[in-house]
């Protein structure tokens, strides 16, 4: 589904990704772990197409298409979802308006009919309930005044509604207490654990991986994957630290 080959990327002339290669197949959950500054978030932003993140060489193919050739909104319409480590606050735009705009933009881009207001509200309510996001919260401005945990749950509501093919989740577990971690982890499993979907889970810690069990674990250091393995690699990292394994 996703094939990253020898990816090099920089920000403001500073090289962050140094030849990253990774393949993600349908039905797979891959965890990317690594120390601070390894390039984990950069990988997410490069895949999402954030302005300022410049790919200097390498390729990314998503469902047979050149991902790097697409604008960020086109990547989303093609089925990519980027979960933000720090979801952005948008004063003056309600969650409901934001979600409906996004959903319909993607539908139009795929040549599908727009969703009716009634259908949308039913869908939004169902996703919200599953993730402990009330309709009251849905009517508030996007992420404004939300706690860290509420923002992350809100990301999952978006993911549930948008129903992507591939989710790249950047430290979705940061800022979550134990209960919220369970809600978010169950959400990822419910929405993304399907034969035709895949997840790239960027995280520092084992605890999310106890709920969303990865099929593959990769260690990212200095902008490239230095080691790959099964779920046991995450446990080993937790025990021994990055220093021993990334060295």
């Amino acid at each position: 589904m996703l094939r990253i080959e020898n990816l090099h990327a920089e920000i403001d002339g500073k090289q962050i990704l140094n030849g990253l290669t990774l393949s993600v197949g349908a039905s797979e959950v891959h965890a990317i772990m690594g120390p601070n500054g390894a390039g984990k978030s950069t990988l997410g932003y490069v895949l999402g197409g954030r302005p300022g993140y410049e790919v200097t060489s390498g390729s990314v193919v998503f469902d047979g298409k050149d991902l790097l050739d697409m604008a960020p909104d086109e990547r989303a319409a093609a089925g990519l979802f980027l979960g933000f480590q720090y979801p952005v606050e948008i004063p003056g735009v309600s969650n409901v308006q934001f979600l409906r705009t996004a959903l319909n933009a993607q539908r139009r881009a795929r040549g599908e009919a727009e969703i009716s207001a009634g259908d949308f509200l039913r869908l939004a309510r169902a996703q919200g309930e599953a993730l402990g996001v009330s309709m009251d919260m849905m009517k508030r401005n996007v992420n404004v005044g939300f706690s860290g945990g509420e923002k992350k749950r809100n990301e999952m509501v978006q993911m549930g509604l948008i129903d992507p093919r591939l989710a790249v989740l950047d430290e979705t577990d940061s800022g979550l207490d134990i209960d919220a971690l369970r809600i978010v982890g169950d959400g990822i499993n419910r929405i993304m654990r399907k034969p035709d979907k895949a997840v790239l889970l960027i995280t520092h810690y084992q605890r999310l991986l106890d709920i969303v069990e990865p099929d593959f674990v990769h260690v990212l250091a200095e902008g490239r994957i230095v080691r790959s393995g099964g779920p046991e690699l995450a446990h080993q990292l937790e025990r021994e630290g990055y220093g021993a394994i990334a060295a």
């Binding site: 909104d73 989303a76 948008i90």
Partner: peptide, 21 residues
């Protein structure tokens, strides 16, 4: 970028944020 990452094209994203303003 947040709006773009959710599939909203630049022109519409700009309009939405300007309307919010």
């Amino acid at each position: 970028f947040y709006l773009a990452s959710r599939g909203v094209a630049p022109q519409e994203a700009k309009a939405l944020l300007t309307q919010a303003f």
